[in-house]
Every structure is written in structure tokens, then in C-alpha cells.
Design a protein around this nucleic acid. Structure first.
Length: 770
DNA sequence: CAGTGAGCGAGCTTCCGCTTGACTT
């Protein structure tokens, strides 16, 4: 027999296989399954519902190669150990592996470890068990339920709303959150109050003496009452009424899970959720961090000890405090450690800029989590106003001992604009104070914030919906389906009133502030709102925020052997399938139609709705002889909020601005937004700068000239059939509609046609090889 | 690159969770 391997260990990830092999020694060969190797049949439902929900499994095409390799390895091994993760999915992977590799369940050794350390692996090897069928069945129930929900509701959407749409236990709730938040924002009525803030000095004569910044304890709901108060202020004396000093502590945040890493990388580094995962994957593969898809905040004993050493050597004993964190999130399965540096003593790493930045964040968070609390002293000074019962308070914060803050502090979604860390000058009770300025500023209440990718992940995790491996893909899915879109908005100017008291005089003023400015926020699209409303109407149970939590409870019961997985599915499917049939039969096609009113001149009805190619406005109806007129809605308009006036405006395009050099200049709006057309060529209008309804011919000509000039600059060399061009990623070659990368360090000014031909030939050769 | 919006019907679309590559014009 050709060299038989003593022990074959199968894990889920190749990077994990590599590290484990090092710990296990010569008698063990470690291979990876690359996750699941089997799944429900791709085509059709893949479930025999009548036959007790019997699943029909298949090996997907992209897994056939790896399965063949696993089979070969298994055939040449004496003992087989399956070391997939210790959770529902991991157990199912183990079971599928046993089935596909034709292993005897009684002889197959199932082992688990939560951390990849020599001790953990050794003790796992000592304590093998067999595959836990209850856990496997809870996974099958989960998988089948998701397939039933997704593959029965989606076709209803194709019939009743639009083809190619999708619905699912996770994505539909994600969309619902965004739609409902948008409606809260739409119906929000800002109210204004006047906030009064003051700067007091401590010495009457010395204008430069230490200053206390304070806020009035009361807000005034209109300008008149704010003015009355300022008038009283101008005649009043001030003194320190009371000083309250409260000690406090602040504790570090727990080590990263997938969700908190995504949030913090967004807040501190501006990474998108998928970008964070890509960079983290690279760090993981390079052995620099532990596994990046985890819901656990747990650190291994080795990591705790190492972190402690690092802290002591960097900051001293006083700064170290070993802590174990409890994982709080709903439905956490804790198959892995928290995300941490593999070697906490490596403060920095080699790699790209982004890899370094993300590693630095992970390193700091991990180390800080093992550091001492910070000691804070909060001071509140109350200041009395002799002629008014209302007073002022000044708050300040003093860090008596920095502890973990020396290294890292967590960011928050809405950073407080008012900085509490303001340090107050030392004053005593009854100290008289003198105002420099007291100002009243109109403040509007703000609507709840739109979700960012990261704050949506946070919300989903709180609801127990989705898993670390699916947060990023879910966010891509709802964008790819067109349900939501990640966008920036410039915001609008708003006038705010202010009053300022200085030297006994009150001066009113009006200031501008920008409101509603958004960056990288998730906005619902019309189709997302229509699908959401349809699902909420016909499948309220499925898109209920508690649906996942409720089925999870049942999956847990199946895992504990207290419930039969097929009867759980039966109980679910009965009423569910009935609602599918009912919806198919009774619901109307949903187009989201809204009648806006009548055309002011012709009296024809004006409406908006979802058309075949997106949202549209329509004048007139098809009942008459005259054909209705159509216009697409523009990018940031919603069917739900567009007004009659705005809809009518859409029909003003295309419009002619007149002649320029023998050609007519026409402004229109197309697939890629508003444009200028001149002599058969198109020029995009600048976003946020040019408005197609008001643009002048002079500006249009300028756009045309700019674009033509840039196009000329784009060509560095012109060799006829070969062009050297300036592109987004620097200079490149183009020939016969194919593009070629230039070798590094080449001088494009001196490049010859001969050089180009060589580059092209070289490139074609290497391409053929691969 | 820059429009489209009638109705019919064949054949397609679709889920969530585990994993990593193949792609960079």
C-alpha cells in the first residue's frame, strides 16, 4: 500500500489547516473542506415537502475538485478526524463530509476546539466524540426553512411586482429597517428651541482671565423668551452657586467580533463593510490575526497572558488588568475566539497601508481590553443669575488616570458635538463671575439618522438576524437588487436665528447652517419600498423583527433533542404555504402608483409609478385617443414623496439652449444622468454643480470645452493604431480595443512605437501561459 | 454610454451560511 497516512484531520479553512498541522506533528495530515461541501439542489426547491421535507443534496460544481481531493486523502488514511467548527453549521459540515466520504459515523472522530493553541488541540485529540445528529438536524431545519421562505416568496414577487426580485428571512428585514427609518425621517417635523451658551470670566477687570463655558439650564422655545432672558442677563450679577465633583470610571470595550470590527473600521478608518472583510481576510491568511468571522469576545489564555506581558512592558504593572468578556449578542454561537492579533507582541506588521491600519486597530482594541479602567473626575459648576430663576451649568471632565485610554477609545455613531472633556479653571463657591458673551442660538431637533452599512450590521446583530459570515454579503445583496442604495446627499441650507449679548448690547443675526447632509448612507429605492410594503401586507410574520429570534428558539430545541426537526418545519410550512397560495390568488399587481393631481393647463391626470425600466411620471392615461407622455424620475426622487410640481418639471427635458458653432445645444437626461448634447457628442453635467433646468448656454459651452480639452490631455502618444493614454490608474496602452498595463517606471514621454509593440507582445505571451 | 413605458409567452430569476479565489481596465 502506498504510504498510508496515520491521521487525516479535516478543518474548514486552509489557513487553519496550515497552523494546526504545525502543532500536530508528523503523524497528522491536515486538509481543508473550504466550508460546506454540499447544499440543497440549486435548481427548483430541492426539498420533497410531501416526503417529510426530505432534502435533496448535491455537490455544487465549484466544490467537485475539492471533494475529489478529500476522497483521495480519506482513502489513504487510517484515522479520520473531522475538526469543523463547534456550532450548527460546523456539525452539518462534519455530517456531510462523513456522508460524502463514506465514513462510518461510529468510527469517525469528531473533535472541536475554540482556540488554536497547542493545548487546545492536544486536549481535543484526547476527547473525540461522534457527530451530534440533533445539532445536524437543527442546521437542516435552518437551511430548509430559509430555502422555503426564499424560494416560495421570491416567485410571488416576480408575478406580482417585477421579475428577478428576491425575498428572504434576513435580507427582507434589512430592507424593512431602512424603509421604515426613511419614513420616520419623511414624517419628521423639526421643532426649534433656543439654546443659550455663555462665556464667563473670573476677574472683572482682566478680559483675558480664565474663561468658563456654560450652558443655560433651561431652553427657550421661541425667540421672544430667549430675548427676555438675555435682557435679564444684561442686568444680572453672576456667581458660582455650587460645585459638584463626581469621580467615575470608564472601562475598555471588549475585543472585536466581526460586527464590532466592521463598525469601528467604518468609524475610524472609513472602510466599507466588505472592504473591512477583505483586508481582514488578508491578515488572517498571513497568520497575523485570528479568524475574522466570529461572534465571540473570548480571548484564549495564551492571548490573555501575552497581552498582559505586552502591557507591562509598554506601560508598567499598573496598567494591566486581565479581563474575560461575556458575549452578549443574541444567537451567538461562539465557535471561535474574538478577533485579535495572533502574536500580541507584534505591535506593527508588514503589509499594505490598509492592512497596517486595520491591524493597528485590532491590536489596540485587544490590548486596551486588558488594561485598567480610566479614572475620571466630572465637575459640574452651577452659576446663578441674580435676576432670573434660570441659571447656567458648566461641565468639565478631568482624566485623573488614563488607564486604557492611553491606547484606545471606541468611537460612536453620533459623536457628541459638545466636547465634555473641556477643562474647567479652578473656582470656589460664591466666586463672582462676569460674562464676556451670552448667545442664544436656534436649534432644530434632528430626525433619526439613516443607516450606514456598519450601523445596519449593528442593528441586525442586535436583532439576532444574520451571521458574521453573511453581514457583508447581505448588504451587497440588498444593493444589487436595487432595494437600497448607498449615497451622499449635499444637504440644504437653513436659516437659524441668533442673539448675542456683549457689553450690555443684544445683537440679532441670521446664520446659515447645512442640514440633512449625508455621506455613505443607505437610502431605500422605490422598488425596495414597494417590495417591503407587499411583504409587510402579505407576509407579516416573515418580516417581523422577531421572526428569526422565534425560529432560533425552535432550532435550539431541536439541537437539545426536545423537538423533532420535521415537525417544526411542518408547523411552519402549513400556514406559510397557505399564505403563499392566498397571496397568489388574491393580491393585485403592485406598481406603487400615486396620483399627484391634474395638469394645470390640460387637466390631464398626472401620476407616478414603477415602470418596466424604473420609476416614471405619466401625464394623461391610455383610455383617451392621445397617447400618455412619460418621463423617468431622477435619481434622488421617490414615488412616495415627489410633488406634482416636481413631476411636471421632469417633462421640461430635453430642451434646446440655442446654437453654438453650427450645432444645437440640447440639455437632456439619460441613463447616466443629465447631459449636454452637441454635434452628436454627449457631455455629462457636473453633479451638484449644474442643474439641467436652469443651466445657461455659456456654462454648457464651458462644459463642452473642458471635456474636449481633457480628452486631448488623455492622449499622451498617438501611434495610429496604438495609443498611450492617461487612465484612472495611470498611463496605459490601447490597441485593437484591448488595454495593456505599462511596466513600472517607464517614461511615457519618451516611449516609442517599438516599445509599445514589445510590451503588447510580452503581455500576450504571459496571458497565454496562465 | 445617454432611448425605452402595449401584450403575449418561453425561459430565466430566488434563499442563508460555510469557505476562498479570480479578477483589475
Amino acid at each position: 500500500m502506498p504510504d498510508m497516512i496515520e491521521n487525516l484531520v479535516i478543518v474548514e479553512s486552509p489557513a487553519k489547516a496550515k497552523t494546526i498541522e504545525k502543532f500536530l506533528g508528523k503523524n497528522f495530515h491536515v486538509v481543508s473542506s473550504f466550508g460546506h461541501i454540499r447544499d440543497l439542489k440549486k435548481k427548483n426547491l430541492g426539498i420533497n415537502v410531501e416526503n417529510d421535507f426530505e432534502p435533496v443534496y448535491e455537490i455544487p460544481k465549484e466544490k467537485t475538485r475539492i471533494v475529489a481531493e478529500l476522497k483521495k486523502a480519506a482513502a489513504g488514511a487510517k484515522n479520520i478526524w473531522i475538526a469543523s467548527d463547534e456550532d450548527r453549521e460546523g456539525e452539518a459540515i462534519a455530517w456531510h463530509l462523513a456522508a460524502v466520504l463514506d465514513l462510518d459515523p461510529a468510527l469517525t472522530k469528531r473533535i472541536v476546539f475554540h482556540e488554536i493553541t497547542k493545548d487546545a488541540i492536544a486536549s481535543a485529540i484526547e476527547n473525540p466524540r461522534t457527530i451530534d445528529m440533533n445539532l445536524v438536524n437543527s442546521q437542516q431545519a435552518r437551511r430548509i426553512l430559509d430555502r422555503l421562505v426564499g424560494f416560495e416568496i421570491s416567485p410571488v414577487l416576480w408575478k406580482k411586482v417585477q421579475p428577478s426580485l428576491s425575498a428572504g428571512r434576513v435580507q427582507s428585514v434589512a430592507v424593512r429597517l431602512i424603509v421604515e427609518r426613511e419614513r420616520e425621517i419623511i414624517s419628521f417635523n423639526p421643532e426649534s428651541t433656543f439654546r443659550i451658551s455663555a462665556f464667563f470670566r473670573t476677574l472683572e477687570e482682566d478680559l483675558k482671565s480664565p474663561v468658563i463655558r456654560a450652558e443655560a439650564t433651561q431652553r427657550f422655545h421661541d425667540e421672544k423668551s430667549a430675548l427676555d432672558f438675555l435682557e435679564l442677563c444684561s442686568l444680572s450679577d453672576y456667581k458660582v452657586e455650587d460645585i459638584v465633583v463626581k469621580p467615575g470610571t470608564r472601562s475598555p470595550a471588549p475585543p472585536f467580533t466581526t460586527s464590532t470590527l466592521q463598525q469601528e473600521a467604518y468609524r475610524k478608518l472609513g472602510f466599507s463593510v466588505s472592504q473591512t472583510m477583505t483586508v481582514a481576510q488578508r491578515l488572517y491568511e498571513g497568520g497575523k490575526i485570528t479568524y475574522m468571522r466570529t461572534d465571540s469576545t473570548n480571548l484564549s489564555k495564551v492571548a490573555l497572558a501575552k497581552s498582559r506581558e505586552v502591557i507591562i512592558s509598554l506601560f508598567g504593572d499598573r496598567y494591566a488588568k486581565t479581563r474575560q468578556y461575556q458575549t452578549k449578542s443574541k444567537g451567538a454561537q461562539e465557535a471561535h475566539e474574538a478577533i485579535r492579533p495572533t502574536y500580541p507582541d507584534n505591535k506593527t506588521i508588514q503589509g499594505t497601508q490598509n492592512e497596517k491600519r486595520l491591524y493597528d486597530l485590532i491590536w489596540k482594541r485587544t490590548i486596551a481590553s486588558q488594561m485598567a479602567d480610566a479614572q475620571i473626575e466630572k465637575t459640574a459648576i452651577s452659576i446663578s443669575v441674580s435676576r432670573s430663576p434660570a441659571g447656567f451649568t458648566a461641565t468639565g471632565e478631568l482624566i485623573k488616570y488614563d488607564g486604557f485610554l492611553r491606547l484606545y477609545s471606541e468611537s460612536h455613531d453620533q459623536e457628541k458635538i459638545d466636547d465634555d472633556k473641556y477643562i474647567l479653571p479652578p473656582v470656589k463657591k460664591d466666586t463672582p463671575l462676569y460674562y464676556n458673551t451670552i448667545s442664544a442660538t436656534q436649534k432644530f431637533t434632528i430626525p433619526p439618522p439613516r443607516y450606514t452599512e456598519a450601523s445596519l450590521v449593528k442593528k441586525l446583530e442586535e436583532l439576532g438576524i444574520g451571521r458574521p459570515s453573511t453581514y457583508a454579503p447581505t448588504i451587497s445583496t440588498i444593493q444589487n437588487r436595487g432595494y437600497v442604495s448607498k449615497e451622499d446627499r449635499p444637504g440644504e441650507a437653513r436659516k437659524i436665528k441668533t442673539l448675542k449679548l456683549e457689553n450690555g448690547k443684544i445683537t440679532p443675526a441670521v446664520k446659515n447652517e447645512i442640514t440633512g447632509k449625508e455621506k455613505s448612507k443607505l437610502f431605500p429605492q422605490d422598488i425596495g419600498m414597494i417590495v417591503n410594503d407587499f411583504l409587510v401586507e402579505y407576509f407579516p410574520d416573515i418580516v417581523d423583527y422577531n421572526f428569526t429570534a422565534e425560529v432560533e428558539e425552535q432550532f435550539d430545541k431541536i439541537a437539545d433533542g426536545e423537538m423533532k426537526w420535521t415537525s417544526m418545519l411542518k408547523d411552519f410550512y402549513g400556514p406559510f404555504h397557505e399564505s403563499i397560495e392566498n397571496t397568489l390568488e388574491k393580491s393585485n399587481r403592485k406598481k406603487g402608483i400615486r396620483i399627484l393631481g391634474n395638469h394645470p393647463e390640460t387637466g390631464e391626470p398626472v401620476s407616478v409609478r414603477m415602470g418596466r425600466f424604473g420609476p416614471l411620471a405619466q401625464i394623461g392615461d391610455s383610455d383617451n385617443d392621445e397617447k400618455p407622455r412619460f418621463a423617468s424620475l431622477s435619481k434622488n426622487q421617490l414615488i412616495e414623496t415627489i410633488t406634482l410640481e416636481e413631476a411636471l418639471n421632469l417633462f421640461r427635458l430635453p430642451r434646446s439652449l440655442g446654437m453654438h458653432q453650427d450645432g444645437e445645444i440640447v440639455i437632456g437626461t439619460g441613463k447616466y444622468g443629465p447631459y449636454v448634447r452637441h454635434e452628436g457628442k454627449f457631455y455629462s453635467l457636473k453633479k451638484g454643480v449644474d442643474d439641467p433646468y436652469t443651466i445657461t448656454i455659456e456654462r454648457a459651452v464651458e462644459i463642452i470645452r473642458e471635456k474636449n480639452e481633457n480628452d486631448r490631455k488623455k492622449i499622451i502618444k498617438d501611434f495610429g493604431d496604438i495609443l498611450v493614454l492617461n487612465g484612472r490608474f495611470g498611463p496605459y496602452l490601447t490597441k485593437d480595443k484591448k488595454n495593456y498595463r505599462l511596466p513600472k517606471g517607464i517614461d511615457t514621454e519618451k516611449i516609442t512605437k517599438h516599445d509599445c509593440l514589445e510590451i503588447i507582445e510580452k503581455n500576450n505571451k504571459t496571458h497565454k501561459k496562465s
